[in-house]
């Protein structure tokens, strides 16, 4: 049985797709057979970030409608043979996504994958609901700003009341906080909420902090998940997150302000 992870947030543009690509790759790199599904019907972003947009033949909706088998639609990643991508449809409308259809696809994937990562669209409508409905674990991606935190809180409420686990009175979805696009210098200036502020508002287990980093854009432009760039701070942050999720004890990084060059030279604080 696979463990189903939803990467969700409520608010748009906070880094869900970046995170989905990174952690799916991270889990696969460690030898766990992993599938990552794009639930953002109509927008299709994940395949770009995974660099497989030119190999898309069939998509998630085709599989739900029985127009293609899962094996036909799954794209094997070119960097890691344990990783498969199920792209979203760019042309269909969102109503094609049905609870029954999604449930069937996840059930079939669960048979021979260890992890299924669901990249949720923004908002709390149908697509976002279906992405989280079957989840075992939720990675709640939040940016250090009030509106993003509020949306995450809203999403946490839905996770605990509108998911399959909630409806069946099973053990609740495990919720993890991923604080993304964190810029310690801006926190210091008071432009951004700090890690402590966010944790205080959400009271949620912090899986990791991903710094604001140019490497994310570089990676997505070249279609390689940023976790493969092990020199980059964001890549390392995601590697830590995967390790912590798998139960390893890693101290948190990227929370403190990087010392500027001058401060380094003069040893100031």
């Amino acid at each position: 049985m696979a463990r189903i992870i939803v990467v969700t947030s409520g608010k748009g543009g906070v880094g869900k797709t970046t995170t989905s690509a990174a952690i799916a790759m991270g889990l696969a790199k460690r030898g766990h057979k992993t599938a990552v599904i794009d639930f953002d019907v109509g927008l299709r972003n994940l395949d770009l970030i995974m660099g497989c947009e030119r190999r898309v033949v069939y998509d998630f909706i085709n599989v739900i409608n029985g127009e293609a088998s899962l094996n036909q639609a799954l794209i094997r990643d070119k960097h890691c043979d344990q990783l498969y991508i199920l792209p979203a449809s760019q042309t269909r409308d969102k109503d094609a996504l049905t609870q029954e259809g999604v449930g069937k696809v996840l059930e079939e994937l669960s048979k021979d994958f260890q992890y299924v990562v669901c990249d949720s669209p923004a908002g709390i409508e149908r697509g976002a609901h279906l992405a989280m409905y079957f989840a075992d674990d939720a990675f709640v991606v939040t940016n250090p700003e009030v509106s993003s935190v509020r949306d995450s809180d809203r999403m946490l409420g839905l996770l605990s009341s509108k998911s399959r686990r909630a409806e069946r009175n099973e053990e609740p979805i495990k919720e993890y906080l991923l604080l993304s696009r964190y810029a310690p210098d801006r926190v210091k200036l008071g432009d951004m909420l700090s890690v402590d502020d966010v944790q205080d508002i959400l009271s949620l287990h912090l899986l990791g902090v991903i710094p604001e980093s140019k490497s994310v854009l570089t990676a997505s432009n070249s279609g390689v998940p940023v976790i493969l760039d092990d020199k980059s701070d964001a890549g390392q942050a995601y590697a830590d997150i995967v390790a912590r999720y798998l139960g390893e004890d890693k101290p948190h990084r990227f929370i403190d302000e990087k010392k500027g060059l001058l401060a380094k030279l003069f040893g100031g604080k």
């Binding site: 049985m1 463990r3 766990h32 260890q114 992890y115 075992d136 999720y245 798998l246 139960g247």
Partner: peptide
């Protein structure tokens, strides 16, 4: 942590 996946045959 994600124990289900590891323990469930």
């Amino acid at each position: 942590m994600p124990t289900d996946a590891q323990n469930t045959p």
